Simulated assay, not measured.
Amino acid sequence: MMTRRAFSAAAAVAAACVAAPALRAQGRLEKTKLAIAVGGKAAFYYLPLTISEQLGYFKAEGLDVEISDFAGGAKSLQALMGGSADVVAGAYEHTINMQSKNQSIQSIVLMGRAPQIAVGVSTKTMPGFKTMAELRGKKVGVSAPGSSTNMVANLVLSRAGIKASEVSIVGVGTAAGALTALRSGQVDVMSNTDPVMTMLEQKGDVKIISDTRTLKGTQEVFGGPMPAACFYTHADFVKSHPNTCQALANAIVHGLKWLQTAGPSDIIKTVPESYLLGDRALYLASFNKVREAIGVDGMLPDDGAKTALRALASFEPSIKPEKIDLTRTYTNDFARRAKDKYKA
């Protein structure tokens, strides 16, 4: 009997054979070897990237990708701006942030329909927590300063009337280091993704005070749909590499399609062992919690872009909504074609 891994490998080879004529029809790839930067690859936030990589979907599209993992999204954005990465798997709101600094960055395919970020207070250093005002002066753990975990923390603080300058932001990553930082008392508050937040929550280490791991929770926090992880790159790269961008979108939408029917055991067999952080059951509990937040067809909703702009402008004085052209921050052209190709 064929093992699932052997079957996946055979399926990837078969997909590559099937994809070859389609690629010729689509046009030659302008660039086949790509450097992709990501901040916290083991987080569920980037699960579609890992799935598409592990199941050979990038190779099936004719791409040879090298993925570099950084501590957080702000660092992977730096890699793109510094020229060491061609594309970033990162939070959509960076495209808006960069436009406010006169840099044209564009999302080409969406992986996440909700940020999947929860904010919790430490039950060890803040055992009697009652009101948000108590967060003033505290140490807040985020994946990396300037990342989307930092943005959600800023939003929660600003709604409580607390300025970002009134807390200390500490970069703790999105894996074992984040668990240690909170449990050892290095931080009082944690704004992070799963599986980290579910692990802290289930062991009673945090009390959750804000949650965007579900579509309902995201609606409550942001007042609308909030696009999360996407592939983004320089607008010039999108113009000069349309076939390469199409191949990237195809690979991700193929992964999203697989995720729609995958069971928890399929996920466990596909992701690297290190992603489980030593607790398979908790990893699966986390997956079930964020499942609906994962994208389905790679399309970024227009009202989602508006929600992101509204959220950023609410605590970031440098972002003036009237000066931002949202149509330049994303395109659904590649996702639309990929959706048709894979019937996602």
Results as ranks from 00 to 15, higher is better:
A247V: 06
I208W: 01
F222L: 04
S191R: 10
K216Y: 14
L200F: 01
S210Q: 12
I267G: 13
T244Q: 12
V221G: 04
G217W: 07
S265T: 14
M197Q: 10
D188G: 04
G278S: 04
D266K: 08
K257T: 11
V196H: 01
R280H: 11
G204R: 03
L277Y: 06
V221L: 13
K216T: 15
T193G: 00
K207W: 00
G255E: 10
F231T: 00
V253D: 13
A247G: 07
D188T: 09
F231P: 00
T261H: 13
T214K: 13
A249G: 05
A235R: 11
Q202A: 07
F237T: 02
A228L: 08
G263Q: 15
L215G: 12
A228W: 02
L282I: 08
I208F: 00
L284F: 03
Y275F: 15
K239C: 03
M190V: 09
K289V: 10
P242T: 05
K239N: 09
K216E: 15
F231G: 01
G217D: 11
I267E: 15
I209D: 06
W258Y: 15
S286V: 09
T198S: 13
G255L: 08
M226K: 07
S240L: 11
V271R: 15
E292A: 14
D279S: 04
K203L: 05
I294F: 07
K207M: 06
A293G: 15
M199H: 15
T244Y: 08
D211L: 07
H241S: 02
V189G: 08
A228R: 08
V253F: 11
P242S: 05
T233D: 03
N243W: 02
I268K: 09
A229Y: 04
I294P: 06
A293C: 13
A235P: 10
L200V: 06
H254L: 09
L256H: 09
M226S: 10
S286N: 12
V187M: 04
S240H: 14
G224P: 07
W258E: 11
V196Y: 01
S240W: 06
C230A: 13
S191G: 09
A285P: 05
